[in-house]
């Protein structure tokens, strides 16, 4: 009940946020724009629509995750609205879970809207829809939720600017994880080797959650790639939630 109350409040906060609406309209507009862009690429329209659409979904989902996720915590702490809630008979972990749940609902609704826009564009252009995109969309959702958890984790103990920087760094390194591994293997004796190795193991490999190219190009995927991605992402999400709860439960709300 208490978690749900916080989740519902968070959901209201996010859907009444103009930034979210603007990003969503822009994302859907951009997906619809592929109707024109697709026309430019002879014989490749379908591929361009899918590729462009999934990328837009990923990037704009990420923007929403970072800006709304960080704002959600920092606003509570800096504007001190948290005083009214945290002084009530509610555990701090319930506040965190409620916030993550509320924001997740908003993000998932966004993904649904963007998916409708993508499939709608496909239907207009091709006269059919490719349900084979669904696994990629599912893992994009997991990736966005994971980034939300990073944003909330950082913003539970550092400023909004630093939180945004760290979250973007995690996203970037997460997608360059393969390069990082190769670099460590090729140059094992370079300075800061231990640091790079540490980063490689701590930051999630977000390419595991990236099936965009595979579904667009109809490439053969490793068996259980979706299930593995799902479990990998959920594992990180749980770990981050646990760390956030530990930090947030012990901190003074000054």
């Amino acid at each position: 009940m208490r978690i749900w109350a916080v989740a519902l409040n968070t959901f209201k906060e996010t859907i009444r946020n103009r930034v979210l609406i603007n990003i969503l309209i822009f994302a859907i507009g951009l997906i619809l724009l592929t109707l024109i862009i697709g026309d430019w690429s002879i014989y490749q329209q379908a591929k361009v629509i899918k590729d462009f659409g999934l990328s837009a979904m990923s990037i704009f989902g990420l923007l929403i995750a970072i800006f709304i996720g960080i704002r959600l915590m920092v606003q509570e702490l800096e504007q001190k609205t948290i005083y009214v809630i945290a002084s009530k008979p509610i555990n701090r972990w319930e506040i965190i879970l409620g916030k993550v749940l509320g924001l997740s609902i908003t993000l998932m609704i966004n993904i649904v809207f963007m998916s409708i826009a993508l499939w709608g564009t496909e239907l207009i252009q091709e006269g059919q829809i490719d349900l084979g995109l669904a696994p990629a969309i599912l893992l994009i959702t997991v990736e966005i939720l994971l980034i939300v958890c990073f944003a909330i984790f950082f913003s539970s103990f550092i400023s909004s600017t630093l939180s945004a920087i760290f979250t973007i760094v995690v996203f970037t390194i997460g997608h360059l994880s393969g390069f990082l591994r190769d670099y460590i293997e090729i140059y094992p004796d370079k300075g800061f080797h231990w640091l790079l190795k540490g980063i490689y193991y701590i930051v999630p490999n977000l390419e595991i959650l990236n099936l965009k190219m595979a579904v667009v190009e109809h490439l053969e995927q490793p068996p259980h790639a979706v299930l593995f991605g799902l479990l990998y992402g959920m594992g990180y999400i749980l770990l981050l939630l646990l760390l956030t709860i530990i930090i947030f439960s012990k901190r003074d709300l000054k």
Partner: peptide
């Protein structure tokens, strides 16, 4: 806290509600 009512100094409440 179930039996406590608390009003913070110059409270900031959720403006979007």
């Amino acid at each position: 806290m179930k039996k406590v009512g608390y009003l913070p100094e110059q409270p900031n409440l959720y403006g979007y509600l």
